[in-house]
Amino acid sequence: MSVPGPDHLIERARRLAAPGHRRILGIAGAPGAGKSTLAEGLVEALDGLAVLVPMDGFHLAQRELNRLGRAGRKGAPDTFDAAGYAALLTRLRDPDPTVTVYAPAFDRALEEPVAGSVPVAPGVPLVVTEGNYLLHDEGEWARVRPLLDETWFLEPDREARVRRLIDRHVRYGKERSFAERWVRDSDEANARLVERGRHRADLVVEPTT
Results as ranks from 00 to 15, higher is better:
M1A: 15
M1D: 14
S2K: 12
P4I: 10
P4M: 08
G5Y: 07
G5C: 14
D7T: 11
H8T: 14
L9I: 08
L9Y: 09
R12M: 10
R12K: 14
R14M: 09
R14S: 14
R15G: 12
L16Y: 04
L16H: 12
A17R: 04
A18G: 11
H21T: 15
H21C: 10
R22D: 08
R23D: 05
I24Q: 07
I24P: 02
A28C: 11
A28M: 12
A30Q: 11
G32N: 08
G34W: 02
S36P: 09
T37H: 13
L38D: 07
L42Q: 05
L42S: 00
L46Y: 00
L49I: 01
L49G: 00
A50H: 09
L52T: 01
V53C: 07
V53N: 01
P54V: 04
D56Y: 03
G57K: 08
F58N: 00
H59V: 07
H59T: 05
L60G: 00
L60C: 00
L65V: 09
N66A: 15
R70S: 14
R73Q: 13
K74T: 03
D78P: 08
T79P: 02
F80T: 01
D81S: 09
D81E: 10
A83N: 01
G84S: 02
Y85T: 08
A86C: 07
A86F: 03
A86H: 00
A87N: 04
T90H: 07
R93P: 00
R93H: 08
R93N: 06
D96W: 02
P97K: 07
V99D: 13
T100G: 08
A103M: 02
A103E: 02
D107K: 01
R108L: 03
E111V: 07
E112K: 01
V114W: 01
A115R: 11
G116I: 00
V118M: 00
V118T: 08
V118N: 02
V124F: 04
V124K: 06
P125Q: 01
L126E: 05
V127E: 06
V127Y: 05
T129S: 05
G131S: 14
N132S: 12
Y133G: 04
L134T: 08
L135Q: 01
H136F: 11
H136V: 01
G139E: 07
A142V: 15
V144R: 01
R145C: 05
P146W: 10
L147K: 09
L147D: 06
L147A: 15
D149E: 13
T151H: 10
T151Y: 06
W152R: 06
E155T: 04
E155C: 12
R163F: 07
I166C: 09
I166Q: 03
R168F: 07
R168C: 14
R168D: 09
R171W: 10
R176W: 06
S177H: 15
E180D: 06
E180C: 00
R181Y: 12
W182Y: 04
S186H: 12
S186Q: 12
S186E: 14
N190V: 14
A191T: 04
R192V: 11
E195M: 02
G197L: 03
R198L: 10
R198Q: 01
H199P: 07
R200D: 05
A201F: 09
V204L: 11
E206L: 14
P207A: 05
T208W: 15
T209Y: 13
